[in-house]
Design a protein around this nucleic acid. Structure first.
Lengths: 261, 261
DNA sequence: ACGTCGATCTCGAAC
DNA sequence: GTTCGAGGTCGACGT
């Protein structure tokens, strides 16, 4: 913790005029302001909305983003993405008004409080790294690191091959007999859409190369009803879980570090 | 306010063991718990993620949803949708652990605090109505109320017509000359995807009716490059803003009320 | 239960 | 700057 920094300051049941001062000061310092109280909200922009009086929580972050949260629900009922400018004031009829405006697109939300239960000003420091594992691109990485995840003897030639209008191929390679293999990777259960997409890719490639090309979908499982479609289109399926790929990449990382020393 | 209800209770810089008690009590009462402190987060489920140590804000709502917010960014860095079950405890190495588990899909997040700056328990009541104006379905409503928004003499026949595998038509009707008109409504600028979708709908309908059918996209504007595609496919465009539709519906509402009295 | 579609989607990358 | 696609998308609605 930095010397002298007070991470959290709390103001309980402030008068509205006091709350205005605290909120303005927090916003001017570009730190986080958390307000709870009775309010109504108006939004005007890409759409427009009104939210009648009720008790809620408002979070204003240092990057100028705003969240209005009801007591239930994962999503904020009203919000503003980062980059807002703020006006905080007492209105003529004695409410506390916070207005957040952004440009491009031009939109604003106005929050009117007639009672504030709590204002918290938070000066937080967060440099911790966030890492999401086993995404679709990481599954591709894992296959390039360890091609046998697809099948024994598989050798990748290129990744993310551009087919022009048709789209991209996840992995393109040759099998143990030298036949081309087009691999379509999915992190989620494979549906008909993915199979048809692969089918379109194959059609595009077969036009160009004029020799046998295998098509393979790779993912954690097949949705039901997809197997017959695969057979009809003469495509193949290889089971591969994101977790397995994560393991492969983790081992590779360890290997690289031990080679380095 | 309900007699005796204390909307907000604040605990500043509690010892972790005290924080455990307060959080458990809040969760058991199914009210909102807000925690700020130094923490790390692990997620395991559809994907997996790790978030290293840093100072953040955690919101746990009465419906069992969880949000982990960094000091910047509109979106939570980690979260859990509603319906979670919770375990709150001190770990062997003296951290405060909050674990939120949900089933279908099976996933969990674990939040480990080594310092808690603030625990706030909020017993909020929020019955205020939320109204969003000028959605896509409201644009359809407006067209049914006032068909001339599409063009003079247009008469709607049906809405949300099912085309089986192809999808749905927003509005289907006849023009002043009795020709069929298929209307595709968009609240946002119209891109190629919407035009191609309309084109597929038309193809499907023309097979069935075997007489002239006009296709029209209706929305606030055309994305650039879409005009040539419209011309090539012999489709039409009619400008209509969500705001205009909102106005039409508002006037209709006023009219209905005045007819009632 | 599963699948499709819209969203004040948000966010990031590519062009 | 705009456009395009992915997301632990979420949430609503229909089957």
């Amino acid at each position: 913790m930095l010397s002298g920094r007070v991470p959290v300051s709390v103001y309980e049941n402030p008068r509205l005029v006091e709350a205005v001062g605290v909120i303005r000061e927090g916003l001017s310092k570009h730190i986080t302001v958390f307000v709870s109280g009775r309010c109504r909200v108006e939004y005007e922009g890409r759409a427009s909305s009104t939210l009648d009086w009720g008790e809620r929580m408002i979070m204003i972050k240092s990057d100028g983003s705003v969240l209005v949260h009801r007591p239930v629900g994962y999503e904020p009922v009203n919000w503003q993405p980062s980059g807002c400018l703020f006006q905080t004031e007492l209105t003529g009829d004695g409410n506390l008004k916070i207005k957040a405006i952004r440009h491009r697109p031009r939109e604003s939300i106005s929050i009117f409080f007639d009672k504030v239960y709590l204002v918290t000003v938070l000066d937080l420091i967060d440099t911790g790294e966030f890492a999401l594992h086993a995404s679709e691109s990481q599954m591709r990485e894992a296959i390039l690191v360890k091609p046998s995840l697809v099948e024994k003897g598989f050798r990748p030639i290129s990744r993310e091959k551009d087919l022009g209008e048709t789209g991209f191929i996840d992995v393109f390679g040759v099998d143990v007999e030298g036949k081309f293999v087009v691999v379509e990777i999915k992190r989620n259960p494979i549906g008909k859409d993915a199979v048809l997409q692969l089918s379109r890719y194959l059609e595009s490639i077969r036009k160009k190369v004029n020799r046998p090309v295998r098509g393979m979908v790779v993912g954690p499982e097949l949705r039901k009803g997809v197997q017959p479609l695969l057979e009809r289109l003469r495509l193949e399926y290889r089971s591969l879980s994101p977790q397995k790929c994560f393991e492969v990449l983790r081992r590779e990382k360890v290997k690289k570090i031990s080679e380095f020393f």
